[in-house]
Design a protein around this nucleic acid. Structure first.
Lengths: 233, 233
DNA sequence: CATTATTGTAACAAAATGAGACAATAGCTT
DNA sequence: AAGCTATTGTCTCATTTTGTTACAATAATG
């Protein structure tokens, strides 16, 4: 970790973790990073600077890892149990990165972590691992590697909140390209809910909500009637 | 503040605030406290000890103020903007309580605050103001005194989340006595939603959910047919 | 130019909800 | 004791929403 990560610059014992959702056309995926030489898989997270708002801290962290601006973020839960923190795991991460334990003692303590989920356009990201990580990659939500500490719980909770929000907030905007077909939108919903939706009912419901603009038809080169393209109002 | 509130015992720059809901039979109310000699009205809040889970910290704080055990709590949001903290307000509270500013410097910093709401039985509480407060009292949610800092926003957010949760979690259990009439339950719903509900539709819906047990009739001494009593399964 | 897969919408069925009506009844008034 | 009043529990019918099936439209394919 660079010298910029001085203890006194950051709020102590507080972190954030992000569940960054993307949609590859058929599956819902999230970003998972792997720490150098440890075999530890984790959610992208970070700390909050003393003079920085929580939202900004998360926004910056997600921006840096994805190369995106204007990220759609929702806070979903704050994790505050004592068991969630594990100094041994943090210690291994630090030593494997040749960081001075003494100087980074503060990272071994107990942490509250605020969970945010992001919805981003899978196509547009340019992934950049941070200093501590070997890699950052997409994983299907039902084929995740074993995540360290309580990060799997975080994913579950994020998904739970996302599903509840699905009826109340517009979700497709951020997971799909600007223009999309009704089928693509349906596939996003199916991936999030983890179940099939009846086509005609879904179409009727979406159209009746009056949140979509219908555009010209797409000539998609398939051997059947071409669908309309839509965008959100 | 007592000598027990040493800086190093607590997580720095983190607090919790609680929106404690009760139902007096017709209105939804919350608990608001008033700091000594300041005119500041605030939500009951506190800090998290280093070796204490977040949930426990809140549970203890709410228990102490209400005298209740087994409190129903839901975390609803974490507030993390920079503007929310106001050292001048904290300073006044400390000086009016004859507390040493030097020693309590840490309270003047910037705070993240985790919001929880509680649902409690209005009848059973025995209110106890904390050391810094003159009083703790019930206020109707639409007749609140001016609350300090962002505490009004917290109440609004708590209510918003409570309303969303109303369809998904059982709420009456905690705001009503063990046994209650259908009308009482309806009044709780109406108070939370802030609108009238159709009686017959509400009754049909509640009965069809199969979450209620019907008991003997109540002889309530009113000049009309006696209603059944219900409890939650 | 018929075939194929998919799309958009119509049509009907089933379920959920809205709205009103009515009989039952506990205590009050005579 | 008989009738009155307010409220309760339930039923019925209307309306709206959702589930299900059907079918015509149509872009590429062979």
């Amino acid at each position: 970790m660079s010298s910029s990560k001085e203890k006194r610059d950051y709020i102590q014992n507080v972190s954030y973790d992000s569940v960054i959702f993307g949609f590859n056309g058929s599956q819902l995926k999230i970003l998972v990073l792997e720490y150098h030489n440890t075999g530890y898989f984790a959610l992208p997270g970070g700390f909050v600077k003393m003079d920085q708002s929580l939202d900004d801290a998360v926004k910056n962290g997600v921006s840096q890892r994805t190369g995106l601006q204007d990220i759609y973020l929702e806070q979903f839960y704050t994790f505050g149990s004592l068991e969630r923190s594990d100094p041994k795991i943090m210690e291994k991460i630090l030593t494997e990165n040749n960081l001075d334990l003494e100087q980074h003692q503060w990272m071994l303590g107990r942490f509250l972590s605020i969970g945010y989920y992001a919805l981003i356009n899978y196509e547009e990201v340019s992934l950049r691992p941070d200093e501590l990580s070997d890699s950052i990659n997409w994983y299907s939500i039902d084929e995740l590697p074993p995540l360290m500490m309580d990060h799997k719980k975080m994913v579950d909770k994020a998904l739970e909140v996302l599903r509840v929000n699905l009826d109340r907030k517009i979700v497709g905007t951020n997971l799909l390209p600007q223009k999309f077909t009704m089928r693509q939108l349906q596939e996003v919903y199916e991936a999030i809910l983890g179940e099939k939706i009846r086509r005609t009912t879904f179409q009727r419901k979406m159209l009746s909500m009056e949140i979509l603009v219908r555009h010209e038809k797409l000539f998609q080169g398939k051997a059947h009637k071409a669908p309309y393209l839509y965008s959100f109002k």
